[in-house]
Design a binder for these strands. Structure first.
Lengths: 341, 341
DNA sequence: CTGAAAGCGCTTACAG
DNA sequence: CTGAAAGCGCTTACAG
């Protein structure tokens, strides 16, 4: 168990050849460079005997590639991003990439700093869910010439790769579902409505109401402040349950759905007897909630692996495709008890 | 918006000085090296004007430090590790480190590969929750001379840094709590009992039963197979609810607790009327479960930040402390409805 | 007190 | 077809 790191030069010296030859052989270019089989065999033999571990940093430095992906999501402790992150890690590993995780907390400033840090760390590319109001930061990536794929969100003003679901259709469908159940007073509780992703959900909801001939309209969309706290949710729910006499609520994410349920439990509002609920996202625990939650499940596994595949193909192509890949996947509606009989 | 990367040499040439001087100034060693204030000012000025971004890889290569921590947990999509990972990321960022996330899926083989990959990527150290049976892999880290801190778990056979909670005491307390509620038939559902962490929970549970004069003992400990599926949990629960006529179950983790509740919902077993439950861990959703879950909350924030602080202090000290830091934190018992009146 | 030179460990273009 | 040499962009020990 020696302490000294063995380098390619050590192998070369021991064999009386140049370290260039060692490098060729170890990188599988022996054939290509017409190095004799016997020599190749001996290089591998000595490398194994010395337990040679190439210094990756030297390689990165030389090649400019780090085999690293920068991932920026809102918050890794949010189960939605946890599942997504897991898939991204899995697919990246499959392709020989490691991933640096960053949580932006939906702050454009933090996001910008993380982006700079990752660019300076010479990641090969990014997968990210940019926070609201971060168009400038995203555009600035262009300067670095690094490829990136947006996930869960995108900006209409930026022509980029992205992987999202059809949010409009999903919200429309969920709202129609509640209407068919007989609910007429349906509220929509959301946050980050500036993001297309979220706004498409709002649009889908409103359109479904309109198409049904109801005119509750805008009044029933509750846009929570940017950094929403449980108190904000509470205030909204108190109003909805009280004067608004709402019969059902559609939550625009599981994070807000969870907060909503917490508040309802505290206030003694029964689900679905007093108020029925449907929620975007489908974390595992929705099955065991106070009333199992009717959910709009996103194909997180497919979203994550698709994003990574697009990214690595661009990294390996050496430059960005002229054509951005814009992937829109379908979600799955899962009925449970929270939406009533 | 030029494409060419600016290097420290560009700044040096423009000022007619050596790039060494530029390096000194930019690294805040101007004073130390007695470089005139005027020169320092000009260096910063030109660096700003050229929008100089030092090539971190070159720096890493030169210094051998990457300002990167390797984090290996079981599964980032598990809320327990999600919260923990979030705290680790936060504290690491505070200290100027980025973190590469790896999920081992509790596989020693995968874990070993991730370790090798991270060592070759020259991370500065590790924070990890090693899977059962990975003693050899952990010991192998010694060869790399890299510092590491275990989290949530440790191996009695390895003298290392670690941060855990007092699992024995927590399980003991939870069991006594159930006994005081009047339950006499209490089962303990667990997995990975080979890990001290988990085994300490088992011991605490058994000791509490013994101290109370009850002799249900071993028979009520259900050790699920290593890679437990919902079917395994179902089988156990069916037995417990049926012939065993158990009145309460203590779950050894939130992952298994969630599965347990799913099964109970499917089987129509009411909580706590038919069977009361208490669970280790306290994910957010425990508050809104079918019956809000009485939980043993771990201080995840403190665990994460403590682990990172120990690690970075060792990284910066240049070598491992002779004394391993073994931190045992307290957990918090939170009573909710799932444990009955 | 200041600055030129060496060198980290690879890969690859190029000369023989 | 093979191998010696250059060079990636920093930092720091060392000579002046």
């Amino acid at each position: 168990m020696t302490k000294k790191k063995v380098t390619s030069d050590d192998i070369a010296k021991q064999l009386g050849v140049s370290k260039a030859l060692v490098s060729f052989v170890l990188n599988g270019k022996g054939k290509e460079k017409r190095i004799s089989d016997e020599m190749c065999r001996r290089v591998f033999e000595v490398a194994g005997k010395l337990n040679y571990q190439p210094n990756q940093i030297a390689r990165w430095f030389r090649t400019g590639k780090t085999q690293t992906i920068g991932l920026i999501i809102a918050d890794i402790s949010n189960p939605f991003f946890g599942k997504l992150g897991r898939e991204i890690e899995r697919e990246a590993a499959l392709q020989g990439y490691k991933v640096i995780f960053c949580s932006s907390d939906e702050s454009p400033v933090k996001f910008g700093k993380q982006l700079d840090m990752l660019i300076n760390s010479r990641v090969d590319g990014f997968v990210m869910a940019p926070p609201p109001g971060s168009e400038e930061q995203v555009k600035a990536i262009e300067m670095s010439k690094l490829p990136y794929v947006l996930i869960d969100r995108f900006f209409p003003s930026i022509d980029s790769n992205y992987v999202v679901i059809d949010n409009y259709a999903a919200a429309y469908k969920a709202t129609v579902f509640l209407l068919k159940k007989g609910y007429t007073k349906i509220a929509f509780l959301t946050v980050n409505d500036e993001l297309v992703t979220m706004h498409d959900r709002t649009r889908g909801y409103l359109q479904a109401l309109q198409d049904s001939g109801l005119t509750l309209g805008e009044k029933s969309v509750y846009r929570l402040p940017f950094s929403h706290s449980k108190d904000d949710v509470k205030e909204a729910i108190v109003q909805l349950a009280g004067e608004k006499e709402v019969g059902a609520i559609l939550f625009s994410s599981s994070k807000i759905g969870l907060m909503g349920m917490e508040v309802m439990v505290e206030l003694g509002i029964r689900i679905p007897e007093d108020i029925a609920i449907v929620s975007f996202d489908d974390p595992d625990f929705y099955k065991v909630c106070i009333s199992p939650v009717t959910a709009i499940a996103q194909p997180l596994s497919e979203m994550g692996s698709t994003a990574v595949k697009i990214l690595t193909s661009e990294i390996e192509a050496g430059e960005q495709d002229l054509l951005s890949r814009k992937i829109v996947l379908e979600s799955k509606f899962i009925e449970r008890k929270s939406s009533g009989e």
